[in-house]
Amino acid sequence: MEPIVLGDAEIIRVREFQGPFTPAPVIVPGVTAATWKENEDWLAPDHWDPATDSYVGALQTWVIRHGGRTVLVDTGVGNGRERPDSPHFHQRQGDLLALLAAAGVQPEDVDTVVNTHLHADHVGWNTVDRDGAWVPAFPNALYLLPAADFAGLEAATDPQSDGYHMFADSILPVRQAGQAMLWEDRHRIDDALTLEAAPGHTPGSSVLRLASRGERAVFVGDLLHSPVQILHPSCNSCFCEDQQQAAASRLRVLERAADQRELVIPAHFGGSAAAEVRRAGSGFSVSRWAV
């Protein structure tokens, strides 16, 4: 895929998977069947399969190159993980490192790993299995972890939960290796990249803002699972832990994106995956897809 160029920054999508994931009424329960149908002309087939009424999503990592720095935004599910709560992710075998290599990114090239939040499908390739031990997949990277999510996972004690295993195999190893930084509220990576808290989906959910030579983007993680949430920002995904707070964060981020012409880049949009949004009544609309 051709990179997105914003100012001096290059953005590359590295996609491991795209396809039907779960019934659309399950993924965004507040959206009516009529809304999906009325927007079929642009939701299908990249974001919705009308034949099965399935939500279509992607597992992908975004690579940002700017000022000599290589940044990864979220790292997918990983390989060989115990995920008892998530059949889609349990013992999955993917090839993110090979896909990154095909895009010209070797593990040692990565300077920074951003986990927008600590859910299983955003942290899995933080680590790899080396001789039976989980070790950082990116040996020179600083891993930026939301402190609020870290605290919740650190307290997980149920060995039958995703969180318990995820902390052990994808979070704790980078912390023990001295490569993790816990942050809260706001963290400036460099003159172009800034992390900001956007809680609700998880307590520590965040967005990453990019600004370079007057052009802007915002990586919104799971604030948006589907483009229908752009039309109806009060509608949460079924995975949002604090529904009211998630809706408030989504509205705030979309308002700024529309007003400041930030390109919106969610974690899981299939097909066309980065959107310019504009205000439209009480909600928003997609004015252009970037990729």
Rank of each mutant, 00 (worst) to 15 (best):
F239T: 14
E276V: 05
P29Y: 07
D158G: 06
S170H: 08
D41G: 00
G80I: 03
C238R: 14
D185L: 00
E38S: 14
Q60N: 15
L59D: 13
G7C: 13
D149F: 02
D46Q: 05
V113C: 09
G30Y: 02
P159T: 04
G163P: 02
P3K: 05
I64R: 15
R83H: 07
A34H: 06
A275M: 10
F219K: 12
F239C: 11
H90A: 11
R13W: 03
A155H: 07
G68S: 10
L96P: 03
V71A: 06
I12M: 13
L72M: 12
A156T: 02
E16C: 02
H232D: 09
R256W: 04
Q229R: 13
V5K: 06
L142R: 09
V207A: 03
N39H: 08
P23M: 15
Q243A: 12
V128N: 03
L97T: 07
A98R: 14
E154V: 03
D53E: 08
E2S: 07
N140E: 10
P136V: 03
G178L: 14
I27N: 01
V286I: 14
L100H: 13
F269G: 12
F219P: 06
V77K: 08
V264S: 07
G283Q: 12
H88V: 08
G178H: 05
Q106C: 14
G163H: 02
D242C: 02
R15Q: 15
